[in-house]
Design a protein around this nucleic acid. Structure first.
Length: 957
RNA sequence: GCUGGAGUAGCCAAGCCUGGUCAAAGGCGACAGACUCAAGAUCUGUUCUCGUAGGGGUUCACCGGUUCGAAUCCGGUCUCCAGCACCA
């Protein structure tokens, strides 16, 4: 016995490798290929991540033991800006980041090296492989490891895009992306790798509303185009100097900042002059859609840096508008200062346009009142605005005043009204960031129109149909996702698949200025694991991995001879790789976290369907849920989580694997709790101790009923495991093995079981059942028992038929003990002797007759009664027979009766007699078992009359 | 709001598709007992409620329905969770 888990783990991992279990090669066996969605390289992972990975290894090991040749390759996904961000933070000497790295075991002398993104990726590749996956005992084929930043992977990726292009699934159209005015495209995200400010900014799509005023347009930007029916006036900031801008053959008035932004998105913009805000106050301009003249009023809340710096006023639904309008109306000084007329003031009356749950006619007023906002400029107005916007979007309906849009939900009206105004030339769309974003270089980041952005056309109907159709033939679990995946596939639109800027990844083959984006390069990759091994060994070189190469080995195009000439790869090797691909693909199972349901899995399916023939499309998907933190999520960036090597050290790898396998359904989130992991460790400890003890048994030649029982029970458990694993029910496997079988073993010993041959037989079943989940402990126990070879390579034999009678026999004993205990507890008598009366033969006969009738569907009270009373031997028992017949007929017609066959197989008197000693010792009462048929039996209270088959009568005194 | 999911005893969690040994597996925790120098140890029992003979009563979010019979099937209500995109 190894002295520690760690020692045990290392020992067996070495053995597996020595025996070649971590290498997958073609063979005559049925193959099984499984992968997990490879993780993004963005720092250390935590214990939660190991959940899904562990499921893969468990499934792979199980398949291996049931006759499959298994391939379980792993890799990493380093595309994107994660590594760049991380490297930058280290380079900046970010204290939190350095602390986090060190806490996870990063050596000080590595930090310098990690300032380079690529070095950082190579570093973490090693961490993932060695500290996580190898440490956990995965039987993965490490020779096939690949990373999305490898040269050879890039060649595969470029080929994939060529095939998408061949399938006419690559399209180009305009796109709006954040870009620094000096450095070009940047990533705007919370990690702020490219930018110095504004990481939380989102790109928002505004509608520019054009208000005609003689020969110029005042242009307002709004996020709520559906509110145009509520427009009653227009706002300008009197303190701001606006610009006049030529836009095509029109003249627009907007803020200077807006003019600059617009020039990045619209053609033909040119500033031709300026105009002061205060000069516009008092103008009348025509509102779009409603075509009504509205007055221009002054308002300080118009920020020249937001939108266009000009705002349309919808007081009914915009809190700012409501409160500012009130202020204008109640400020005679302002009215006279700007020369506003009474007609203008009186015309600005709020119009109720949207009905919303929980609000009256004027939602803006309601929220102002409920939040206690008194004047413009109150910072709470921002929250008020968001709240009304959100509630309106979700629950609002357009009122009758909204013309043909009346009755529409806000969500729908928004798009329809916007489109209509754009079509009529009254509006245009405009993209802007929700907050100020500044590049690392100090220049502002703006939204820039790109005319030739590439997309993968996932909206393609043919593709969607083919993909969706294929999904119906797959094993997708849980079943809920099997049903929902079609909705997701239909919901997919064109997806921008390349980007510019400071990102890692593969160059787009048709335009090297672009980098293939992170989701798009991780869809078809499982097939690449079959090829990566040859690239890793340098048997094929990136420059040889051209279109004809992949066309041949993946799609079987052209013949090896020709391709060999073109690529310089030997014909034999090409044929070998082609055969490998043909053997291992399709992928049997892709395991990924629940977040992949709406992004990775659909694109994984789409790309397979787009490029590969139907017989090579994936066969299965399994989605796993998460391990969460106590209160918030255990996030790798927050650093609160237990590092994986630390957990492995502390609990032992197999305890963790058992924890993942059993703690909950894979399809539910679980809260990480070390005490629970500890309890799994204790269970493993107990199992080890028990196995060692059992293995020392040497006696017992004759098989007793407990022996028969144990083997039957174990057979039943193993059958349940196989049944469950048809649906990859790992939890059922764990439950049967580590709990049910364990409890049966305990009962066996307690009942005095000691037959060493039986025990060895049972141990063999038990230890092999444990092997997929706790492989290290299983190997150790397997070797302690001197079983042949490695348990990891053991093939589960066919299971012998269960013995229902034997299984029922033990249930009977337990029931009798429980009944006696209950009687003693309730009556509080101090019993010294117990008499157990088993059912008389004639009652069994009645039951048998009833069962026979029941199985032929003819059971009813009169039939049964008649049949029994026709029997001479029964009739002599008089009126108790019809009573019993009635009881059985009633009970048996309403319940399932399989167990009754088992009980009739059993000689209860014999069985209970042989267990009498055991029952006595368990209950502390001296037990005598008597058949109710016995002549002159001791039965002072006449209890024996109550004896029924499977339900002996009990008398205590 | 849309799409999907969930609500089971002190807690976690099976069961629900395929209605009937379901007062409802298993695990934690708690209580009691055994063992004991000791152990985050192990073993045994109890853990909805009433009950001096193995029984009865009331339960599986809530309301109603189907059925001889419902935790399980159907309709409705309430509450909670996830995703809603270019982010891996």
């Amino acid at each position: 016995m190894a002295s520690s888990y760690k020692e045990m783990e290392e020992k067996w991992q070495r053995r597996w490798s020595e025996e070649g279990l971590d290498r997958s090669e073609r063979s005559d066996k049925k193959k099984f290929m499984i992968v997990f969605a490879y993780p993004g390289v963005s720092g250390y992972l935590h214990v939660g991540h190991m959940r899904g990975y562990t499921y893969c290894d468990v499934i792979g090991r199980y398949k291996r033991m049931t006759g499959h040749n298994v391939m379980f390759p792993v890799g990493t996904h380093a595309t994107g800006n994660g590594a760049v961000t991380l490297a930058n933070r280290i380079a900046r000497n970010d204290k939190d980041m350095i602390d986090y790295l060190k806490r996870n075991g990063c050596p000080d002398d590595k930090l310098e090296e990690l300032m380079d993104p690529l070095s950082l990726v190579w570093f973490f590749n090693d961490v993932y492989v060695n500290d996580y996956w190898k440490r956990f005992g995965f039987l993965s084929d490490w020779r096939r490891f690949t990373c999305t930043l490898y040269q050879d992977y890039a060649k595969f990726m470029q080929w994939q895009f060529m095939k998408l292009n061949d399938a006419k699934l690559l399209i180009q159209k305009p796109y709006f992306m954040p870009a620094c005015t000096e450095c070009g495209p940047v990533a705007v995200d919370a990690s702020e790798s490219d930018i110095s400010k504004g990481g939380n900014a989102e790109t928002q799509e505004y509608t520019l509303l054009k208000f005609r005023c003689n020969d110029v347009f005042l242009v307002a930007a709004t996020l709520r185009p559906e509110t145009v029916y509520g427009q009653v006036n227009f706002w300008v900031n009197p303190d701001v100097e606006y610009v006049k801008m030529r836009k095509g053959d029109e003249t627009w008035i907007v803020s200077p900042a807006a003019a600059k932004k617009l020039s990045y998105q619209k053609d033909g913009c040119e500033i031709i002059g300026t105009i002061n805000g205060k000069d516009m106050v008092g103008w009348m301009c025509e509102a779009p859609m409603i075509r009504r003249p509205v007055p221009v009023f002054p308002a300080k809340f118009c920020d020249p840096n937001v939108g266009t710096g000009l705002v349309t006023s919808v007081p009914s639904d915009a809190p700012d508008d409501w409160i500012s309008l009130e202020e204008v109306k109640n400020d005679p000084k302002m009215i006279s200062e700007y020369g506003l007329t009474k007609e203008q003031i009186d015309s600005a009356v709020p119009i109720s346009i949207i009905s919303m749950d929980g609000y009256g006619d004027f939602p803006a007023k309601d929220i102002i009142d409920s939040m206690g906002i008194k004047r413009s400029g109150d910072p709470k107005l921002l929250d008020a605005k968001k709240q009304v916007y959100k509630d309106g979007y979700h629950t609002g309906k357009m009122k009758a005043v909204c013309g043909k849009f009346a009755g529409l939900r806000v969500e729908d009206a928004k798009d329809r009204m916007k489109e209509e105004m754009i079509a009529s030339g009254e509006a245009e769309s405009f993209h802007d960031l929700s907050e100020e974003v500044i590049c690392r270089c100090g220049s502002p980041v703006m939204i820039k129109r790109v005319d030739d952005q590439w997309f993968i056309n996932y909206a393609d109907e043919e593709l969607t149909k083919r993909t969706s159709g294929h999904c119906r033939t797959m094993d997708i679990i849980p079943a809920e996702y099997q049903n929902n995946v079609h909705t997701v596939l239909n919901w997919f639109r064109e997806r921008a698949c390349v980007r510019q800027g400071n990102w890692l990844g593969t160059k787009f083959p048709y335009d090297e200025r672009w980098t293939i984006e992170a989701i798009s390069d991780s869809t078809l990759y499982p097939i690449y694991y079959i090829i990566s091994m040859y690239a890793n060994r340098k048997e094929i070189l990136p420059e040889q991995m051209t279109e004809p190469f992949f066309d041949h080995v993946v799609l079987g195009k052209d013949d090896a001879e020709n391709v060999s000439k073109i690529t310089g790869i030997s014909k034999e090797l090409l044929e070998k790789i082609r055969k490998d691909v043909d053997y291992w693909y399709p992928l049997d199972l892709n395991v990924g976290g629940k977040d992949h349901m709406t992004v990775h899995f659909p694109t994984f399916l789409f790309n397979h369907a787009a490029i590969l023939p139907s017989e090579k499309l994936p066969r299965g998907i399994m989605v796993n849920w998460y391990i969460t933190g106590k209160k918030s999520k255990i996030s790798k960036s927050k650093g609160g989580a237990q590092p994986i090597p630390g957990a492995a050290e502390r609990f032992g790898v197999d305890s963790l694997r058992l924890y993942y396998a059993h703690v909950a359904s894979p399809y539910a989130d679980v809260e990480w709790d070390e005490d629970i992991v500890m309890s799994y460790r204790q269970r493993l400890d107990r199992i080890i101790t028990m196995t060692e003890e059992l293995n020392s048994f040497t006696e017992g030649e004759t098989e007793t009923e407990v022996d028969t029982w144990l083997l039957s029970r174990f057979g039943t458990h193993i059958a349940a495991i196989h049944e469950g694993m048809k649906k990859l029910d790992i939890r059922a496997m764990a439950s049967e093995t580590y709990f049910e079988m364990f409890n049966d073993m305990k009962w066996y010993v307690r009942r005095g079981g000691c037959n060493s041959a039986v025990i060895r037989n049972a141990l063999k079943m038990w230890i092999s059942a444990m092997s997929p989940i706790t492989p290290h402990v299983s190997e150790e126990l397997w070797s302690i028992c001197n079983f042949e070879g490695l348990v990891s390579e053991y093939q589960y034999p066919d299971i012998p038929e269960g013995n229902a009678g034997a299984e029922f026999g033990e249930t009977l004993i337990r029931d009798v003990i429980a009944d006696m205990a209950q009687i003693i507890k309730v009556t509080e008598i101090k019993a010294e002797r117990a008499f157990i009366y088993t059912s008389p033969e004639w009652k069994k006969k009645v039951m048998r007759t009833a069962l026979d009738l029941s199985s032929s569907g003819k059971l009813d009270i009169p039939t049964l009664t008649k049949m029994c009373m026709a029997d001479e031997s029964l009739r002599k028992h008089g009126k108790t027979v019809p009573e019993l017949a009635k009881k059985f007929a009633t009970e048996m017609s309403r319940t399932s009766n399989d167990w009754r066959y088992a009980l009739l197989q059993l000689d209860e008197t014999e069985h209970l007699s042989s267990a009498a000693r055991f029952i006595s010792s368990e209950t502390g009462v001296n037990v005598t078992v008597i058949s109710a048929d016995d002549e002159g039996l001791y039965d002072p209270k006449g209890r024996s009359k109550a004896a029924l088959p499977g339900r002996p009568a009990i008398y205590l005194e």
